[in-house]
């Protein structure tokens, strides 16, 4: 069986991606471009925060030091966060939010599909439940990428810019490290490198339909999994953790 430390680390990665992206999306609540979108995007945020809670709860259990999902979310500093750089990128304009979501959802669905067959039954359970939600998220973000890509000249230009700007954060989605290799060998985790080709194909297909161009392969940023983040994460945590930090040990 996997070493608890490795599995803990892996679960925190899964949880942090959902937590930080859910946080970002929740920033839109009340400020969306149209009321229906405001509500729909909030649904996605809610799903992701729910998934984050499940992953982090399990991580705390596996770790065995009595840490709860809240303690993991609210009492770690940026260097201990394990999310991908992609999900902490600022919301920007609506096209940027959707491009980020589109890259993530496409990857997330592939990942969850794999994880729903994990040898670890708890992991498989959470993944299967999350996959249903992620599938809907992906449908939504694909639809929007096509709508904005093939909408007006302005929306086309904005969408292409967003797709280009975020491209350098997509390489990290498929980088494996030793922890993941060990967990793959045990049938618990998913081989991310294997997700790359199908991801490229699916992203390319949607961009094509959206009359957008798939960016050229280029230099990719990475570091999230090692806790080396962009400047954004510190601000996210300052916001998110403010009360827990200002009033230590209080119950809310």
């Amino acid at each position: 069986m996997a070493a608890p430390a490795a599995l803990f680390e892996y679960l925190v990665r899964l949880g942090d991606n959902c937590l930080i992206l859910g946080h970002r999306l929740s920033e839109w609540c009340g400020h969306g471009p149209v009321l229906e979108e405001d509500l729909a995007l909030t649904n996605v945020a809610l799903d992701l925060i729910g998934q984050a809670t499940l992953w982090l709860e399990l991580a705390g259990e596996i770790e065995g030091r009595g840490r709860t999902a809240d303690q993991l979310a609210y009492l770690r500093d940026a260097g201990e966060f394990r999310n991908l750089l992609l999900v902490e990128q600022p919301n920007g304009h609506y096209g940027e939010t959707l491009a980020r979501q589109f890259y993530f959802d496409t990857w997330h669905c592939g990942l969850l599909q794999g994880l729903s067959h994990s040898q670890h039954p708890r992991v498989a359970d959470i993944a299967a439940k999350s996959l249903k939600e992620a599938t809907y998220h992906l449908e939504r973000s694909e639809e929007w990428v096509v709508t904005l890509g093939d909408g007006t000249d302005e929306s086309h230009a904005r969408m292409q810019q967003a797709i280009n700007d975020l491209w350098m954060y997509t390489g990290e989605l498929f980088v494996m490290d030793e922890i993941e290799q060990d967990l793959v060998a045990e049938g618990i985790a998913v081989d991310l490198a294997e997700l790359r080709e199908p991801w490229l194909k699916q992203v390319g297909k949607t961009l094509d339909e959206a009359t957008l161009t798939l960016p050229q392969a280029g230099w990719m940023q990475q570091g999230g999994k090692q806790g080396v983040h962009t400047e954004n994460l510190g601000f996210i945590l300052a916001d998110m953790q403010f009360l827990q930090r200002a009033y230590p040990n209080a119950t809310w």
Binding site: H23, D38, T42, I49, T53, W252
Partner: peptide, 17 residues
């Protein structure tokens, strides 16, 4: 974004929604 727990955050999001 500043809600003090995951549960409070989810409840508040749902409420505002």
């Amino acid at each position: 974004t500043r809600a003090p727990s995951l549960k409070r955050k989810a409840i508040l999001l749902a409420k505002v929604q």
